[in-house]
């Protein structure tokens, strides 16, 4: 007997594959703050940061579906806190 419903792992894999992009101002967010944030969130997604002109482009892929809705917002909050604690 086979089920038409995909396994949980397959579903997770499907949702993990959808990328998301966050743009942050380079005049506000420092590279070290972004690096620390990226390390802190590394277990939730694959994160790639790149400087494009006056913006940091932060690309998220393989996002953990449990945090998908708020990952970008939490990332920017954490980056701001890193900026304040240790610029």
């Amino acid at each position: 007997m086979t089920s038409a419903r995909p396994s949980r792992r397959a579903r997770n894999g499907a949702s993990r594959s959808a990328p998301a992009v966050l743009h942050l101002d380079t005049a506000v967010y420092s590279e070290s703050a972004l690096d620390r944030t990226r390390q802190a969130f590394a277990h939730l997604a694959e994160i790639e940061t790149r400087r494009e002109g006056r913006r940091w482009t932060v690309r998220f892929s393989a996002i953990d579906p449990a945090v998908r809705d708020r990952l970008l917002d939490e990332f920017s909050n954490y980056a701001l806190s890193c900026l304040m604690v240790e610029p």
Binding site: E74, S76, M84
Partner: peptide, 16 residues
């Protein structure tokens, strides 16, 4: 930035 930092626990903050 200091004012924005004080709001991190209540909302999501983005500064530009």
């Amino acid at each position: 930035l200091a004012a924005a930092y004080r709001f991190l626990d209540r909302c999501y903050v983005l500064v530009e």
